[in-house]
């Protein structure tokens, strides 16, 4: 029986080498990472580091170091890890935001800083409402254009570069940049007051 760490390393290595079935592997990876990342996030949020904002990217990075045998990690493997990590973090943060909302008191919100500023002029960190708004907007976008939404997710929550996103999604860098250009405008509109129909 493999330890979670061993299993994760194996999946990551397989994904990175282009072997193994992508979908089941990522699902499994998701499950395995979720617990770990949630633990990490919670320890961060519960800790004394209130003045610092929570950076999903950083957390995923830390998880990567803990969960994957670095001697067997490749660039491609790391990219896949982070890609899954993006989804995981998004889930965790949204869950947390929702949970926060339902509680009348206690448990203040830890500011979240995404890999890139979402709204121009806004504070670096997102508050609860903002995070939820982003999540919902992303959902809407995904219904219209799944790939475009994925690009945004990978960018915001995992901080992947154009090349890395292109590798994950198996498209060209130019495509990624184009998707991003459109998505940015679209999101800004969605998230601003003017965009409201």
């Amino acid at each position: 029986m493999q330890s979670p760490r061993e299993r994760i390393t194996q999946i990551v290595a397989d994904l990175g080498a282009g072997q193994g079935d992508a979908a089941p592997s990522t699902e499994e990876l998701f499950r395995l990472m979720y617990d770990e990342l949630r633990r990490l996030a919670h320890s961060f949020m519960a800790g004394e580091r209130r003045d610092h904002t929570l950076q999903p990217t950083a957390l995923v990075h830390e998880a990567f170091l803990r969960l994957v045998d670095q001697s067997r990690a490749t660039w491609q493997g790391r990219t896949h890890f982070f890609a899954v990590g993006a989804r995981v973090m998004r889930n965790i943060l949204v869950d947390h935001a929702r949970a926060q909302g339902s509680a009348k008191r206690g448990g203040s919100w830890q500011q979240v800083t995404l890999a890139e500023r979402v709204l121009p002029g806004a504070e670096v960190g997102l508050d609860r409402e903002q995070l939820l708004a982003v999540d919902q907007a992303l959902d809407r976008l995904a219904r219209l254009d799944q790939r475009e939404a994925r690009v945004v997710e990978l960018r915001y929550f995992a901080g992947l570069t154009v090349a890395e996103i292109a590798a994950v999604l198996q498209v060209s860098k130019r495509t990624v940049e184009a998707e991003w250009t459109h998505a940015r405008a679209w999101l800004r509109r969605e998230l601003s007051n003017e965009g409201r129909p």
């Binding site: 709204l119 405008a185 679209w186 509109r189």
Partner: peptide
């Protein structure tokens, strides 16, 4: 048109 309005405002993550 509306997309373009939100695009023209320069760099990523900046206030229009």
């Amino acid at each position: 048109r509306s997309l373009l309005r939100f695009h023209d405002d320069g760099a990523a993550g900046e206030l229009p």
